[in-house]
Amino acid sequence: MSTVELPKVKKHTRLEDVQAIILGTMIIAMGVNLYTHTGLLTGGSAGLAFLLKYATPLTFGQAFFLINLPFYLLAIRHIGWEFTLKTFLAVFCLSVFADITPMLVSFNDVNPVYASVAGGFLMGVGFLMLFRHNASLGGLNILARFLAEKYGISMGKFQMVVDCMIVMLSVFIVDYWLILISFAGAIALNMIIAVNHKPGRYMGNV
Score class of each variant (00 low, 15 high):
N108L: 13
L104T: 03
K53S: 12
P102Q: 10
F83W: 05
G80K: 10
D109Q: 15
G119Y: 01
I153P: 07
A63F: 02
L85P: 05
E149S: 14
L89N: 06
L6I: 12
I179N: 09
F88M: 15
M203N: 13
L51A: 15
L147E: 04
L73V: 14
V162W: 00
H133W: 00
A144M: 09
P112D: 05
G120A: 11
N134T: 05
G200I: 05
L73I: 13
N134G: 12
K10Y: 02
F65D: 03
M191N: 08
L73Q: 01
Y202R: 07
Y114T: 14
W177V: 06
A75I: 05
F64M: 08
F83R: 07
A135V: 02
G200Y: 02
N68W: 03
F64G: 07
E16D: 11
K150V: 09
H133K: 09
G126W: 02
I67R: 03
I79M: 14
G126C: 08
L6N: 12
G126P: 01
I173C: 14
R14L: 13
K86M: 07
M203I: 09
Y151L: 14
T25C: 08
V110A: 11
F158Q: 11
P102R: 12
Q159P: 05
A148K: 13
S182P: 08
K198A: 02
Y114L: 14
L169Q: 06
V161P: 10
F60D: 10
V117T: 04
F127H: 09
C164R: 04
